[in-house]
């Protein structure tokens, strides 16, 4: 079992002929992802390692069933590419680019919602149903099948947590990178709800950070809706207020989004919080024993 994507998911790559697009097309194919087509305007008719390239998403959709798309498109052009995928009826859209203007992100989310498209990101590493389908840029070797679901706001930190889990003998069911921007598609609550329903997931690890209110809202939701054990890890305990730590959301403003506030909210929902990455597997083990 898996959520959002599985071994049958047909994936399109928008921007497949660029450096990153081609490199990660190969990595995803190596992982076992069904990459069925690519799009690069002006490059229609070519191919990348046998993957056919089309000028437009609509042209690719005439020839293939497209379930998901991943964008390797520079931020200034990402809005157009996202609209194109949504207009073509693609139901899962993974937006890797960072530095997409926030007004563009809001427009994309509104259009996606009215068309029933799930958006992952922007500014995400993607998502993976371990052993089945990887749509993203994460290093293949750490994502081995298992029954821990992981949902994270941050990329490398998620690898760190998954790496710690793998080292402790825990594989993953589905790992979702929500993205580090202020406005993103999928949020903790939506992913938690899917993982609760997923028979392949026994416990859930949330990787959060300071800033915003996503963890607090997730905590409120967990209380009433999630029966599976949830463990959280939060980054940014030492961050000073008013300084934006890389991610657009990672800033303590007007006393909101603090580490302490998030820990309190999560603990109140019965979620133990690890302060340091290496503590996560211990908390998972303890939660699974109960």
């Amino acid at each position: 079992m898996a959520i959002y994507i599985n071994e049958h998911t047909n994936v399109l790559i928008q921007g497949i002929t660029g450096n990153q697009g081609t490199f990660h097309a190969r990595q995803m194919v190596k992982y076992g992802t069904r990459i069925v087509a690519g799009v690069s305007p002006g490059k229609g008719g070519k191919d990348v390692d046998g993957i056919p390239v089309y000028d437009t998403v609509a042209a690719a959709a005439e020839e293939h069933r497209l379930d998901a798309s991943i964008l390797f498109i520079p931020a200034p052009f990402a809005k157009d590419a996202a609209f194109e995928a949504i207009a073509a009826g693609i139901k899962v859209l993974v937006m890797l680019p960072e530095h997409i203007p926030v007004h563009d992100a809001m427009a994309i989310m509104a259009y996606a919602k009215s068309n029933g498209t799930v958006v992952v990101g922007p500014n995400t590493f993607g998502l993976v149903s371990s052993g089945k389908c990887k749509i993203g840029i994460m290093p293949n070797q750490f994502f081995i099948p298992g029954d821990i679901g992981v949902v994270s706001r941050s990329g490398t930190l998620c690898y760190e947590i998954v790496g710690n889990l793998t080292a402790a003998g825990y594989g993953t069911s589905t790992v979702v990178g929500l993205g580090g921007d202020r406005v993103v598609g999928l949020n903790f609550i939506e992913v938690l709800a899917e993982m609760e329903k997923d028979a392949g997931t026994k416990a859930i690890v949330m990787v959060g950070e300071i800033g915003g209110s996503a963890e607090e809202e997730a905590a409120a939701f967990i209380k009433g809706h999630i029966k599976k054990p949830v463990i959280a890890y939060l980054a940014g305990k030492s961050a000073p207020p008013g300084k934006r730590m890389g991610h657009a959301g990672a800033i303590i403003e007007r006393g909101k989004g603090t580490f302490e506030g998030k820990v309190q909210a999560l603990n109140a929902a019965g979620v133990p919080v690890a302060e340091l990455p290496f503590q996560v597997p211990e908390l998972v083990a303890a939660a699974l024993k109960k």
Partner: peptide, 17 residues
Amino acid sequence: MANGAGITMATLDLIQY
């Protein structure tokens, strides 16, 4: 120096810890 905003924050947390 680290690679990624989240892991950089986590590194600062560890130093403080």
